[in-house]
Design a protein around this nucleic acid. Structure first.
Lengths: 242, 242
DNA sequence: TTGTGTATCATTGTATACATCGGAACAGAT
DNA sequence: ATCTGTTCCGATGTATACAATGATACACAA
């Protein structure tokens, strides 16, 4: 169960519409379509060899996902994400990851806990070697294990959503070895708290982990390589909080 | 700016699809369509005098909203909400309303604060008179003022969403004069905290307010008059928490 | 009776045709 | 040069036609 499975409950990857939806989504998240770019129904349809109908339905869904905005009778445009949006999402996530950690403490299975331990172990190994790709992948995976472990489809769905959403602007968060070592320590502490059944501590650690991740991201500059997230508003709040 | 405006940024109420979307949505929330009921494209289209196209597009959106579930090549079914879902949402909301209160403390305008004071005042009046409809309306409005005041479209959207979602099963939460008096006290305390600029207290009070509302709802039985929310899982956790 | 295969048909999935909207280009007036 | 109105046309909004799916009923065999 990776981060896409939850979405695919809803996105139906075997219909044309499902494929169109996934492709456009990926193209936006990967930065192929830039912020404020206009998406034309026929063009995208031709590119994928389908008619406008499935494209239109995919558009409607992408709009609700917040990836595009549709202006009636005009067109569909890739949504801009301001620096404030990113900040808001991280703050929202900090609360929700905390809640997730609390629930995970109560509901995590042995299997999930095992995978989490292995994840932390591996991440420490790769951090020592400076393997950035593996580190990023393991970091994502760590969080998704926790999302699953909380045993709440509602919360899992929400967190997966935000996680993906933020990936648009968060390409290289862990790019400094410094941060990845820090991050691993936080993961380990969080895992230990969950393992020990200390829900209060787990919530607190997950909450702080998110805020530190955000602060680190801000410190190193939000901009990613895709040209997204140029920040409509000035971003001068590195965070205070708690 | 009421609770529908935020949705209407996206739902385009002047197109056929927008009207279909709103109508189905309302029919589900009001309980006209029961849980697990199948929605047929042609039937709904005919009922509203439109073709399948706008209905289908509305369906796709309603699916992402979580109100219906679409099974490929089979049909659309009204989503069931289990008692656990409701509980999860309230716990999620308790965190987010807390965050919202914190932000509102920093960002509320004089106008919003004035409306909030008037709201609390009026609510106390109507509670004394036992005017349940007005009390419910004022309760909703109180929360929406706060959602607006937090000055975060991301968070506002999320909270409005959940608020509406839960309305399906929350018809009569404030139906006891007892609870409405309690609730008003909590609103007043929260408002005073926001007015005084005490963000920590505001967050704590908003958080607790939500949990108390949930616990009260559970105590009086979740079931509403629409036949929704019969609870696929047994509901025996009145809440512990904090 | 039970099970299996097949025909049927209601319903959804997709493509296409037509209707309507709104922007861009241009013409003429000031 | 700027403004205004008009025409044109590309793009979206909606309806309809056609394709494909899957549930149901029924026939028939074991």
């Amino acid at each position: 169960m990776n981060e896409y499975d939850v979405k695919n409950e809803v996105s139906d990857k075997y219909s044309l519409r499902g494929r169109v939806f996934s492709k456009i989504r990926e193209d936006i998240l990967s930065g192929k379509y830039k912020e404020h770019e206009e998406l034309k129904e026929v063009a995208i349809g031709e590119e994928m060899g389908v008619s406008r109908t499935p494209v239109r339905e995919a558009f409607r869904q992408l709009e609700l996902e917040g990836l595009i905005q549709i202006i009636p009778n005009r067109g569909a445009y890739v949504t801009g994400i301001s620096a404030k949006d990113v900040r808001d999402i991280y703050m929202i996530r900090s609360r929700l990851e905390g809640l997730c950690a609390r629930w995970a403490t109560a509901n995590i299975t042995k299997k999930q806990l095992d995978e989490m331990e292995e994840n932390v172990y591996l991440a420490e190994f790769h951090a020592g070697k400076g393997h950035l790709d593996q580190i990023t992948e393991l970091d994502n995976r760590f969080h998704h294990i926790m999302y699953e472990a909380c045993n709440s489809k509602m919360l899992e769905h929400l967190l997966v959503d935000y996680h993906q959403y933020v990936q648009r602007v968060r390409q290289k968060t862990l790019s400094t070895v410094n941060r990845s070592t820090e991050s691993n320590k936080e993961h380990r502490a969080l895992m230990e708290a969950i393992k020990a059944g200390n829900a209060d501590l787990a919530e607190k650690l997950a909450h702080e982990h998110m805020i530190k991740a955000y602060n680190n991201m801000v410190k190193n500059g939000l901009l990613d390589a895709t040209g997204n997230s140029s920040g409509d508003e000035s971003m001068d709040h590195p965070e205070i909080e708690d």
